[in-house]
C-alpha cells in the first residue's frame, strides 16, 4: 500500500462542492426555460385550483388558505425533479470524466446539483407565496413558525433533489431521467394537498394519509395558517430525514454504479 501522497485537507470536499454548486447555479440561471416552467407551472396550478375547482371543494374554510401549502409542495416537487435531467445531462458528457480524473471529491458534482436545486426552489417558492399573498392568502404564522415551515421544506427539497439526482445518474438519457421523476409530480395529488382525504375511497385514503407528502403538507399548513398539526409534525420530520438519508445513499450508489466501468 502506497502512502497517500497528497495530503487532502479535511475541508477539500467542501471547497470542491462549493465550486461545483457555483457551476450548477450558473447553469440553472442560463436554463431560462426550466426556471420559467418551475415558476409558471405552480402559478397556473394555483390559479386553476383556486378559481376553477376551488369553489366546488369543501375544506371548511377559504380554499386559497387550504391549497397554498399544497401548491408550494407541488412547486418544490417539480423543481426538485428538474435535478434528474440536469444530472443525466452531465453524466452523458465528457465533463464527468474530467472531474473524475482530477483530485476532486466524488460527491462534489452531485452535491452541486442538489444545492443548486434548493436555490432554484427557494426562488420559485418565494414567487409562488408572493403570488398567493397577492391573491388573498393571509398566513398568520409567527417568525418561528415561518422558520420551522421553511426548515421542513428545505429538508423535503434536499431529500427529493437527492432522490432525483440518483435517478438522473441511473437514467440512460435526459428524457428518461425526466420520465423517472413523474411520481414526484403525481404524489401530491394523492395527498391532502388539494382536497381533504375524507372523501377518498378507503384504500386510496389509506395511501394518501400514509404517504410522506401528507404529513409535510399538514405540518406546513398548520404552521402557516394555524390549522391543527397533531402528530403530523413528527411524522413529517421523520419522513424527510429518513428520505434524505436513503436518497443520499441512493444517489451516491447510483453515481458510483454509473461511473464504474
Amino acid at each position: 500500500m502506497t502512502a497517500p501522497a497528497l495530503p487532502r485537507h479535511r475541508s477539500a470536499a467542501l471547497a470542491e462542492s462549493l465550486v461545483l454548486v457555483g457551476r450548477s447555479v450558473r447553469l440553472s440561471r442560463r436554463d431560462v426555460e426550466t426556471l420559467v416552467m418551475a415558476i409558471a407551472l405552480p402559478l397556473l396550478m394555483m390559479a386553476l385550483f383556486v378559481y376553477v375547482f376551488g369553489g366546488a371543494i369543501e375544506t371548511g374554510g377559504a380554499y386559497l388558505t387550504y391549497v397554498v401549502p399544497g401548491i408550494v409542495l407541488l412547486c418544490v416537487g417539480f423543481g426538485a425533479a428538474a435535478t434528474a435531467p440536469a444530472v443525466a445531462d452531465d453524466m452523458g458528457r465528457g465533463m464527468v470524466d474530467r472531474l473524475r480524473s482530477m483530485p476532486v471529491a466524488a460527491a462534489a458534482l452531485v452535491t452541486g446539483h442538489v444545492v443548486a436545486s434548493v436555490a432554484r426552489n427557494a426562488l420559485a417558492t418565494g414567487v409562488v407565496v408572493a403570488a398567493a399573498i397577492a391573491m388573498g392568502f393571509r398566513p398568520d404564522a409567527e417568525p418561528l413558525e415561518w422558520a420551522a415551515a421553511l426548515g421542513l421544506l428545505l429538508l423535503y427539497v434536499l431529500a427529493l433533489s437527492a432522490l432525483a439526482a440518483g435517478l438522473g445518474a441511473l437514467a440512460s438519457s435526459v428524457q428518461s431521467a425526466s420520465a423517472l421523476t413523474f411520481f414526484m409530480l403525481f404524489l401530491p395529488y394523492l395527498s391532502s394537498a388539494f382536497v381533504p382525504t375524507g372523501t377518498m375511497p378507503a384504500v386510496l385514503r389509506a395511501v394518501a394519509e400514509h404517504q410522506p407528502i401528507t404529513p409535510v403538507i399538514e405540518t406546513v399548513r398548520g404552521l402557516l395558517t394555524g390549522a391543527p398539526i397533531g402528530s403530523a409534525g413528527w411524522a413529517a420530520v421523520l419522513w424527510c430525514v429518513g428520505l434524505l438519508v436513503v436518497s443520499s445513499g441512493f444517489a451516491a450508489w447510483a453515481y458510483r454504479r454509473r461511473t464504474r466501468r
Binding site: T2, A5, M95, D97, R98, S101, P103
Partner: peptide, 27 residues
C-alpha cells in the same frame, strides 16, 4: 502510486485530454 490503491494521489499528478473534449459546453 498505484492507480487502483491510491487514485487520489495519481489524479494529482495527471491530466487527461480525452477523445471527446471534456469541456462544459454551457459555460
Amino acid at each position: 502510486h498505484d492507480v487502483v490503491r491510491s487514485p487520489m494521489a495519481v489524479r494529482g499528478l495527471i491530466s487527461l485530454t480525452g477523445q471527446f473534449a471534456a469541456v462544459d459546453e454551457r459555460q
